[in-house]
Design a protein around this nucleic acid. Sequence first.
RNA 1: GCUCUCGUCGUUCAAUGGAUAGGACGCCUCCCUCCGAAGGAGGCGAUGCAGGUUCGAUUCCUGCCGAGAGCACCA
Length: 569
Amino acid sequence: MTEEIKSILTRIAGSEAFTVEPTPDQKFGHYASNIAMRLAGKAGKAPIEVAKDLREKIIAIDQGKTFEKIEIAPPGFLNFWFSKSVLRREFARMVRTGKKWGKPVMSQKSLVKSRQVVVIDYSHPNIAKPMSVAHMRSTIIGAALVNIFKWSGWKVIGDNHLGDWGKQFGVLIAAYKQQQGKSDKRQGTISIDDLLKLYVDYSARMKADSALEEVTRRETKLLQDGNRDNVKIWKAFYKVSLAEFKKIYKILGVRFDYYLGESYYKAMLPGIISDALDKGVAVKSEGAIVIPIEGKAPFVIQKSDEAFLYATTDLAAAKYRAERFKPSLVLYVVDNGQSLHFEQLFGAVAKLGYGKGERLVHVKFGLILSEDMKKLSTRAGRHISLEGVISEAIEKAAKVVHEKRPDLSIRERVKIARAVGIAALKFNDLSQNRQSDIAFRWESMLSFEGQSAPYIMYTYTRLRSILRKAKVPSKWNPEAVESEGDFALVLLLARFPEALEKARSTFFPHYLAEYLVALARGVNRFYETEPVLTADAPVKAARLRLIEAAGTTLCNGMKLLGITPLERM
RNA sequence: GCUCUCGUCGUUCAAUGGAUAGGACGCCUCCCUCCGAAGGAGGCGAUGCAGGUUCGAUUCCUGCCGAGAGCACCA
């Protein structure tokens, strides 16, 4: 509907930059434009005068077909009210589109031809460490972006770039070997928690004893050179960890197309170095090999002991992805703290000419901080396990469900608690601007009221409940919608495609989350004031259709954010 | 020291140049005779400080105060 206004304004005023947006208040109309204020400066006229002029021209062209009313508000806003016939047409279009409401319309042919490819690199936990709440953000934000891009018609490659290579394994292998040496207990099954303990203990001792640091460096190099013992130990750690991660992904409902971890690229690393040297992009410096980046610290791609770093791996991954997937867009869903690394990486990729024409974006997000706003870190032992958080969320949800719905079977209550707990957790993350840090607070993270996933889910179940009581008739007439409440809901539903597109193009899922909250609120208001089941037959038929459209939209929106819609709760 | 990010009701989060700064939690008042109160209606309540640009600034620029992150061989 924004487009409709934009095209009319463009026809009249040319290609001047202006905005058309939903109004902050119904009394300012349905949509408003700032075009008159934009044009006023150039025309040398008062914005109000320009607005008056535009209004006359639009009315002359439109003849009342599209707009019921156009008003001018100081200091020069043009406020538009769509005519009832346009709103009914839009409503009919939603009903016709059905479950695909919000999907961009594309013919099958143009879809195949123009289909864009995006690689989304997300989650990437470190092998041998339990996934923490910090990895959860990348996983949840990444998964939402995967869904949103897929729904928008893109070909999506979801890749889990596991941290399964590098110095941390030197630490672990050194720690592990030392422990083996001490107790002659044989290599039994090792859990991921054992690995964490090994890592934390050894790191602490390493701080006090620099000789241990040296051992670590040696073990890292041995692993990278393919030493049999070290590779064997590494493989065992890998297996244990991945099984653990997959358990959590299953609970979260997240799937990856690929698990191309850092180790996957190890054979390509020497080639990257020689390529960079051959192209004259990299130089030797202080014994290491670096790629200088203007205005920034140089990008070290080989250490002075000839070992590789994750910078090297990231370059190899960038090259590999460009060649294999030919994406037009690559998203790295990684926390803010690594901004410099990605600036360096993108600079280096450009110099090396990998993936020409593709856009690389660091989709950065804030850290999850502890309640005292300090950084959560594995090394400091302040680790909060993701599994613990998830089960606590589900437990808390279960308590509420048992209280509110003792009439349901235990089995169903368990199912509801699971869906609600996980949704609350995800939504807490997705409803916030991803770039800001968020404090780890149980109360807000597990909120079941107000601006939360359960609020949206609950709204949906109420819609479903109405639709269970009355079948949606196949015959209906959009002319039957008449009240302000009806039209307000139609307008709200009409904004879904725009909210979705904003979330997609900016890579900020919270635009979609916020929209869903607004829609849920609109729906709750709607059936507070507009009778559905008791309305006259034609109105009832139309309102049932409206309820159905709202339900579909909520359902689609929730699924995109990774929330499982429930029939009742 | 340098670079980047961020300071919004008591709390937490929105608002990337627009209208009376929006929601949620908490607190106060009211509402279950279409579905199901995990709901709805109303009230109280905020842009760190000082300048500047603009018709218009939470938003852009400068300085100060405060918080966080990063600054080549960790990931």
